[in-house]
């Protein structure tokens, strides 16, 4: 895995909390707090976590919709932290949004939507018609769709158009922010198939943001689980889903609804997560997961855990992996 396409290094986003008549800054929300992540060429990396975990904020920083407070972003070996919003960088990284209903302008046709990136990035207008046709073909839509308006399309068709728009500038990385969560299950499967096919054809990398863990299991090569702005566990899809080590990952997996007893048997023997994710404005001391962790012990209150390498591909941020600290606390079983 030499030569990563994208490397996030201690990426953080702090939002100021303003209050009162003069909008005084009274505190900060650490939406993303020191995230390290790599994506290789052609790789699909998933980011999972509950709402409020900061996974969308990571996505929005990468595409330049938000400016990181700290940390660096390296793209293709080059530090691009200062160029996140620039045209040159936008040509290489694109995004597909969550809600196909609102990611297309209701007043503009499919062709209009696809022309925006072509015009901005200086593609000669004589070739637009041909490009639009081939983009629509790539997402398996007939060329006649170019003249249609969003209200004439189904959710799945809209999302295909949104994918075509992201592909228009021939990017190397596409950030997929819950691209299928607003779609029917049957449509979901087709969009995922399409995304996999396009990845193989164009050798794209995806950063896939989702709270749908079963989808993530099938789609992603590697998966990171985020909790309150920090990565809790990171590993290959198999590492995470077959051998989850962090109590939070175990809890998340236990809460996936299943259809058969055979599947039920595969799930970790772990109680469901209790309670709600705390507010990122008021992060618990020590380990930020301790308020909901079934294994929490004294050290968790005082010391923030660091990543423990469990294998070459698998790391988990939990004191249970530290024999010196865990002491009497029994290690968790997968």
């Amino acid at each position: 895995m030499s030569g990563n396409l994208l490397e996030l290094n201690q990426l953080s986003k702090r939002f100021p909390v303003r209050k009162g008549l003069f909008q005084r800054v009274v505190g900060h929300v650490n939406a993303v707090d020191g995230v390290d992540l790599t994506i290789g060429r052609g790789e699909i990396v998933g980011l999972a976590g509950e709402s409020g975990s900061g996974k969308s904020t990571v996505a929005r920083m990468i595409v330049g919709l938000l400016t990181p407070t700290e940390g660096t972003v390296t793209f293709d070996g080059e530090d691009v932290s200062k160029q996140l919003g620039t045209l040159a960088f936008k040509r290489r990284v694109q995004m597909v949004f969550q809600n196909p209903g609102s990611s297309l302008n209701p007043r503009r046709s499919v062709a209009d939507a696809l022309k925006v990136p072509l015009r901005v990035h200086g593609v000669p207008s004589s070739t637009w018609a041909e490009r639009i046709r081939s983009l629509l073909e790539m997402v398996e839509l007939p060329a006649t769709f170019a003249q249609k308006y969003p209200h004439e399309l189904s959710g799945g068709q809209k999302q295909r158009v949104a994918i075509a728009r992201a592909l228009a500038v021939q990017p190397e990385l596409i950030v997929l922010d819950e691209p299928t969560s607003a779609l029917d299950v049957s449509v979901q499967a087709k969009v995922i198939e399409l995304l996999l096919r396009i990845r193989d054809e164009l050798d794209l990398a995806y950063l896939f943001i989702s709270h749908d863990l079963s989808l993530m299991r099938n789609f992603s090569d590697r998966v990171g689980v985020m909790y309150l702005g920090k990565l809790a566990e990171m590993g290959t899809s198999d590492d995470l889903f077959l051998r989850p080590q962090h109590p939070y990952t175990q809890g998340l997996l236990a809460s996936i609804p299943v259809v058969s007893e055979a599947e039920e048997a595969l799930k970790p023997t772990q109680r469901h997560l209790k309670g709600e994710i705390p507010s990122p404005a008021n992060v618990p001391s020590g380990c930020r997961f301790r308020t909901r962790c079934p294994h929490a012990f004294d050290a968790c209150r005082e010391v923030a855990p660091t990543f423990h390498e469990l294998s070459a591909t698998h790391a988990s941020r939990c004191h249970l992996h530290d024999p010196a600290l865990a002491g009497s606390a029994e290690p968790t079983k997968a």
């Binding site: 330049g64 694109q94 995004m95 990611s103 297309l104 925006v116 990136p117 901005v120 990035h121 728009r165």
Partner: peptide, 17 residues
Amino acid sequence: HEEYVEAAKVAGASDFH
């Protein structure tokens, strides 16, 4: 705050656009 505005920004569209 509609996603199509953000999508246009990500595509690199100008404020004028």
